[in-house]
Write a protein that binds this DNA or RNA. Sequence first.
RNA 1: GGGGGGAUGCCAGAGUGGACAAUUGGGCCUGGCUGUAAACCAGGUGCGUAAGCUUCGGCGGUUCGAAUCCGUCUCCCCCCA
Length: 410
Amino acid sequence: MNSQGNTPEIVTDEERIQRVLNTGTVTVQVRESMERKLRSGRQLRVKMGFDPSAPDIHIGHAVGMRKLREFQDLGHKIVIIVGDWTAQIGDPSGRSAQRRMLTAEEVQANAQTYLDQFFKVVDDNPEKVEIAWQSSWFGDFDLADVLRLTSKFTVAQMMAREDFRTRFESESPIGIVEFLYPLMQAYDSVAVHADVEMGGTDQTFNLLVGRDIQREMDQKPQDILTVPILAGTDGVQKMSKSLDNYVGVTDEPNDMYGKLMSIPDTALDEYLILAANLPASEIDTLRTSLADGTGHPRDIKDKMAASVVATYHGEAAADGARQAFQRVFQQGQVPDDIEEFSVAYPATIVALLRAVGFAGSNNEARRLVQQGGVRIDGERVEDTDAELTFDTPIVLQAGRRRFARVLPGV
RNA sequence: GGGGGGAUGCCAGAGUGGACAAUUGGGCCUGGCUGUAAACCAGGUGCGUAAGCUUCGGCGGUUCGAAUCCGUCUCCCCCCA
C-alpha cells in the first residue's frame, strides 16, 4: 500500500514516539536507548522474523505487523526475516507435535502467502521495507561458523530462559539443537544489522540473546520491543488454529466480520488496541466510550470488525459484511448469497436436510426438527415425517446461521 | 538390554463378565434470554421411522452372555541399565 520510492522523512515528534512505544506493547528494552535512537533522526532497521513452516496466518500474527507499520510511519525501515532455513531443518523442540521438515518449495509457497498478507498491513515502499531470507547467510555456514557462534554463549545463559529452566528442573528433555535456535535468531540480527527487534512476548529471551550476540560480534546491541499475544475469539486463550478460536487473514469477509463480532465484550478493548486497523485518535475515542459506557459495545465492535475486514478485503467488502450481518442476525432475515440446491419432490424434511448437508444422518435431521431448529421460509417445521412438495424455491434454515435455497428439481 | 503401565465415543476420562449405546466434564448442536455478545437456563449429541443393528486399538478364543476374562498382533507411555 501507498508506495513511493523517495527517501522517507524521519518523524521525531515525541508524542508519536511515545505512542509507538507505549500502545499495544508489553516491554521496551532498553527504554532509554530506544528513545534515543528514535529521536536521533536516523532511519532505524527494525527487524522481525517469521516462521514460514505454517501457511495459516491469523490476525494474531498481524499484531506485530501493525506495530511494524507504525515504525514505518515514523520513517523507519522494517526488515523481515524469512526463517526459510530453519523451516527446512524442522524444529524438534519440546512441543508435543513435532514440526516436520519442509521442502524448499513448501517453504517458498508459505513464505509467499505470508508476504502477500503482510503487505496488506505494512507499507511496501522499498525505502521502508526489506525482505531478508535467512538461507542467504546460513546457507553456507560451516561447522567452524557454528562453533564460533556457540562459543559466545554459555549453558548458564541458556538456562535463564524460563522454558529451559523449568524443563531442566523437571528433568524433561532439552535437545541440543534447541539451544541453537536462539543463537541462530540472534545471528539474524547480526546479519541484518538490526537496530530494533520486535516479537511476541514468547520471544523475549531470543530477542535478548540477539543483543548479547551482536555485542560479541562488535555491533551495537539492538533494542527490543515485545507485543502481546492476541486472545482468540473466546477472549481467553491465545489465538490459534488448533483451538479453533482464530480469525484467519484469508477468511471470507462475512466470516471474518462474524467471528470478530462474536468476541466477548471483555476482549474488545484488547482487540481495539491490537487488532483494529484504525487511526490512533479513533482508537482512543472508541476505547474511551467503551470504558465510560457512552458507546454501545456492539457499535464499537462493529467499527473494530469492519476495520479488520477492510484491511484484508477492502472497504466495500467490509460494508457488505456489516450489512449481511445486520440483515441475518439483527433482523433475522435471510442472507442474499446462499447456496442453492435442487430437490425432487415429494420429499420429507429429513431428506431435504440431508440433501443440503445440514444433517449427516437421518437421526440428526430428525433431531433438528424435534428441537425446533428447522424453518422453511421462516416457518418452523413441526412434523418430522411430512411429505413436502413445493413448486417454487424455498429457503431452508437450520439453526440460526445455516441457510440454503431449495429449488424444485427432477 | 531389563522391568512395568496403557490403548474406550470429537477430546479428556469412568467403567474391569450381565441392569452398558456405555457415568461425568469439555467441545459441538438446538431452543430460551440477548447485541449471532459473554454469562446463564433447558434439551440433545453411534446408525435405524421402528423392531433392531454396529461400537470400547486389530484378529482369534472362553462364556448362555465380554468394553470387562484368555491368547496374539500393532501402537503409545514410564522406570531401571
